[in-house]
Design a binder for these strands. Structure first.
Lengths: 207, 207, 207, 207
DNA sequence: GATGAATGAGCTTTCATTCAT
DNA sequence: CATGAATGAAAGCTCATTCAT
């Protein structure tokens, strides 16, 4: 969303992490970056901080990643892949379902699960961090897949179906997003809130 | 959420903008900053760009603001003040209202209005820009005021009332936020979507 | 000749040196860079060294030049412009000349003058420093202009004329180049050597 | 000429390459470095690239060479030795020769041969690469040996002989150098050009 | 001996901030 | 008060060299 995108392709082929030690280093770097992102946000993410936190020299960091953005890309891509996996799973779960109420529950619980891992990281990735065009496309693709899947499952079609699916999906996504970021501000547990959310959505969809 | 907070308090007492010229300069700077923020995001906001866009020298900028954050603070504070004003107005509007449906409509239309001015700026301020502790407190305060006001208006009390108010307010806020940022992705106009949103909320609250 | 070329265009318009102080700074930077180049070669040219030698902060350097290459470009371009000017002047001097011996003398004295300023800098620029495509084209253009001018002046045409012109020009250029770089190794002054050179060329051309 | 010279003497006595394997490894490294130098120039020569191209690990490279400069030194020294050998051979060839024209031809053909192997490498070594003081001395020694040999062969002595020898040698060297680097820019084959060169030199020396 | 992961000094560049004019 | 030249800390990245395995 904000700012510069990477510029140059890898000059020398970045070392492939075949050995254990290498793998550990790569993981340490990615984890360190994810932690910094989660704890302090995008603006605090700099390669020296990542290397230090990973317990690795700056040189080693650049042994495995061609530039700062590449580290971020791994995190983003893993995050997107996890989302896509959860989505695929949720779709499968929905596919055989008659009961439309189950569908709502599946969508809500899908988004709840999506945020459960590391909501702070999720927030940073989805609002602070600049995404590449390709990454934006993947995000958009994810959303539209969910939307059409939901519309299909609801056996609704046409503009009206799209509107309902949009309401369902966007409400579930934005509310879980908000709630998991600031659980402290809630009057009840996220489980209870999710229950209310489901109730509201069912009422809207099947009135 | 993200990163560096200002470090040093004002060194020399920044001139109070009593004079016309001063006022105009300050306004030009703040507007320039807001425009850059809105158009290009937080990462593009640098003091030289602000000064240039404001038609002011960098030296003058620092004559009126002790540091970059101070400019941002004015923008944030104005934004918050505007939100608080709309809130107060909404509260007043709701206070005499019996009809609970009107309350939902008031809340939804309140958030719609809040985003109508400059949704891009709103997005940047609420997700990219690092807020100070104080500012976060104000945001939280705003939200809790709305929540309690709504709970009161709904004549609901206790935990249940809080939950309902939270659902109402958070749904209205996050959905309008999302929709105004990406109108292109919607299956219908924001007006229609807001209508659906109201319908859903009413169904939930008065079932 | 060797290596990386600049990549990105100027992001913000580099300050135009209108004021005295600015002009002095720009000059100091260019001179410092030229001195380092002349004394220690391309490999010793780094922006910190240039800034330090210029008595300027690194920030100021980047106030006036978008990147390291830009400083070099000024030096190269000035050097090429000087060469082109000398060439044009030499051409004019030759144009009315009947006496073919004068032509040889003009060419030799032209190259002598070209190297007299700063032969070490000339050497570094013509062999160590990586030139852009455009700069290489200018160099090639300079040479071919001289060649055709000389061929014309000698009233020689066809392959034979080209060969003679090439011998004349290349001998004059490479020998002056070599001699001015290492005057100490010569058995006689550069003036005397240039005289011998002229003698040899005349003998060859008018045998 | 340009920049950094090696700093530290060998720390541990580098293994004498007595063993076959060692010899092969050393050769592979030196050849790889020479290839890179020839193809891509001094700026592209880095130890990792050399090791990779030599099919050797970076660790092994440092097993056989104390530092980057040492590899370069081998290349330079071999190049100088080859030059010295050709020189010695040429001197021997000239020693019995009465005919002074043969001497010119011997010098010219000597330099032609010197450049025929790998003119690109020759160019890089003689202009881009930083030479140590010792290496510069060797280069100077080579040249003065040639000069005195030629002066002797020409049966010329005193300042005049030196001047003539200098003209002969320097012209032959710099022109062949120039022509072999950029054959494409020549109006005729290097053989023909060399013939013209000889003609010119003979005319000068025996006028 | 061989390997390649790891190191860190050093280089380029940016931008918030200061201060002489 | 206004100006804009100057500053320098800090961030991204490279590559010669070391060292644990």
């Amino acid at each position: 969303m904000s700012g510069k995108q990477p510029k140059k392709a890898t000059k020398r082929p970045i070392r492939r992490a075949k050995q254990q030690r290498s793998k550990a280093t790569v993981d340490a770097i990615v984890q360190a970056a994810a932690q910094i992102l989660s704890e302090s946000g995008w603006s605090a993410l700099n390669t020296n901080a990542v290397a230090t936190r990973a317990g690795v020299s700056i040189g080693s960091l650049y042994e495995y990643f061609p530039n700062k953005q590449a580290i971020l890309n791994v995190i983003i891509d893993e995050h997107l892949a996890a989302g896509e996996a959860k989505l695929a799973e949720g779709m499968r779960a929905m596919s055989g379902v008659r009961c439309r109420e189950k569908i709502v529950e599946a969508v809500v619980s899908g988004f709840v699960q999506l945020h459960q891992d590391d909501p702070r990281l999720h927030r940073v990735l989805s609002s602070e961090v600049p995404l590449s065009f390709e990454q934006k496309r993947r995000v958009a693709g994810l959303r539209s897949q969910i939307l059409s899947g939901v519309a299909l499952a609801l056996a609704e079609s046409g503009c009206d179906g799209e509107i309902k699916a949009t309401i369902l999906v966007d409400t579930a996504e934005t509310l879980t997003h908000r709630w998991f970021i600031d659980k402290a501000g809630l009057p009840a547990s996220t489980e209870i809130m999710a229950g209310e959310l489901s109730k509201m959505l069912k009422g809207y969809l099947f009135a």
